[in-house]
């Protein structure tokens, strides 16, 4: 007999904590290989300060890099799509992170991941 979940007028709150051990770090490894300057980021925020998209949305490349590094893939997917690839951030980065390529590589890795998931599903 299938039992039904009871509703008591409240629900379980989602845990905000980043569970580093449970998160998947494959995408970060792929990106670090494809664009090694990823590792040079010092989270100074110059990229986000100059970003056109960041003036009108809560987009921040600094946060995108951190989400990638912590394995927060779901939030990463939402965030990275906001970039318009103008490349302004690359001009201002003090550590010469190749930010534009980073965004392209993240998009590519996420797309590949989706594609492989679909392939598995259709098999």
């Amino acid at each position: 007999m299938e039992k039904k979940a009871k509703y008591f007028g409240y629900s379980i709150t989602r845990d905000r904590q980043i569970d580093y051990d449970a998160n998947n770090h494959d995408i970060c490894k792929i990106i670090a290989k494809a664009e090694p300057t990823l590792n040079l980021c010092i989270s100074c925020g110059t990229c986000a300060a100059t970003c056109t998209a960041g003036q009108f949305t809560d987009f921040s490349l600094r946060q995108v890099i951190l989400l990638l590094r912590r394995g927060e893939t779901k939030s990463l997917e939402n965030e990275v799509s906001k970039c318009m690839l103008c490349g302004k951030c690359q001009l201002v980065c003090p550590r010469n992170v190749s930010t534009r390529n980073l965004v392209i590589q993240i998009g590519k890795a996420l797309y590949d991941k989706k594609l492989s998931a679909e392939t598995v599903n259709t098999k």
């Binding site: 008591f8 007028g9 409240y10 629900s11 379980i12 709150t13 845990d15």
Partner: peptide, 14 residues
């Protein structure tokens, strides 16, 4: 507050 009880519940769950 009944609607907030999920917070309490989630702490115990953790």
């Amino acid at each position: 507050v009944q609607a907030n009880r999920g917070f309490s519940l989630s702490c115990s769950k953790k």
